[in-house]
Design a protein around this nucleic acid. Sequence first.
DNA 1: TAAACCGGGTGTAGCT
DNA 2: AGCTACACGAAACCCA
DNA 3: TGGGTTTCGGGTAAAC
DNA 4: GTTTACCCCCGGTTTA
Lengths: 218, 218
Amino acid sequence: MTDAPKILFVDAASRYGWARGRPGEKPESGSARFAPEDSSQGAIAWGAMRFVAEQIQSYRPDEIVVEAPLPATLVNGKTTVSTQEILMGLPFAIQGMAYGLQMYRVSVARVSKIRTHFIGKNAKGEIAKPMVWRKCIALGWISANDEDLSHDRTDALAGWHYAGTVLCPQLAQPIDDLFVKAEERKRREAAAADQRLAKTEQAIREESERRRSIMEKF
Amino acid sequence: MTDAPKILFVDAASRYGWARGRPGEKPESGSARFAPEDSSQGAIAWGAMRFVAEQIQSYRPDEIVVEAPLPATLVNGKTTVSTQEILMGLPFAIQGMAYGLQMYRVSVARVSKIRTHFIGKNAKGEIAKPMVWRKCIALGWISANDEDLSHDRTDALAGWHYAGTVLCPQLAQPIDDLFVKAEERKRREAAAADQRLAKTEQAIREESERRRSIMEKF
DNA sequence: TAAACCGGGTGTAGCT
DNA sequence: AGCTACACGAAACCCA
DNA sequence: TGGGTTTCGGGTAAAC
DNA sequence: GTTTACCCCCGGTTTA
């Protein structure tokens, strides 16, 4: 088998969980906040952007998978606007940053799929989270005397495993639509990029220059 | 009077409108897309982030005001998830980028307030937009044979004027809660930043280094 | 080919 | 195969 | 103070 | 003072 890809999974909320590794290996994982409590949305967004940038730079994942936010209408309006903005905004900003860093292999995974894959049923969080948690312990992905035993972390681990299974069908499952979509998107992105880049070499240089200049203020 | 501040207003949607200038002056304005049609969310987000970065860098506004997204529940569920993600995500990402570039004077304005301020009533878009449009013409902010006569543009102009009125009370209105909130937030941000920075000079240097290194790949 | 207009609005798992 | 039901997170508060 | 638990979920302007 | 009603973009299709 060729090298399994490095996968980074992010469960993005105001407190987020992350997990990364190659399918088959024991993943690293953790949880944290993108910004201190009561921070402005700007601070949170920037925290997320920085997190992604750093991951891409230092860990160099082959794939990034983010947990999809639940549609607001679903929760039957049971969520404040500001919560919504964060829940929707985080994956959005993360994707944007990845795109800006030319990391185009980003996909999005639904909670329900992750759960059914990982614990066999799509239960509501109250029930599912402890199950997920236990399974993570069982798998030895976190140890019971670990410092961080949060659900954010174990949820991310579940997501990571799901992503691995889906992205590396040779390890088990037949591919399903996440993979297909990722391929589709990748092709579309690549094509679009090609088209754009092909226009002129000049355009490339301008773009590159612009990007660099944006950041030299730091 | 001291120099009126340079205000940048953005009406952020997949097709966005912008307007900028100092209150009292004739504003510049326009509309465009953050990314070609059918682009991934990542592309759109990055487009927005780049736009903001460039504005901050080259125009150096004193204030940035973004149009607030309407809560999903409001639209009575009449909005797709992806639309939601974009509508909520754009302002979020914009604020994040601004924050990252240390531009903390960012506020958010509600459509209803803008409209009532600008045309005296909070009518539905179908009715309001043409009214706004006419008023912009009347004010000479766009000329009838202009190339871009889109509502995105005129909406942004209305927003800009509202922002100006609110942020420069000396020109007319008493301050209202947008200003107050901006001040509050600014103070909070500043305090938080101070606190953080005060911890150690070392932290500052690390942070700075990290930021720079994130971007040197460009 | 470009501009105006209109419709449409979540997805999945588990049970029947 | 078709139909139905159902899904969350942030911040305030309280208690150890 | 830290962690578990509970609660709450949009806002405005005009009409009455 | 209190109640009430209102609020949207995206993408596909059609038309000049």
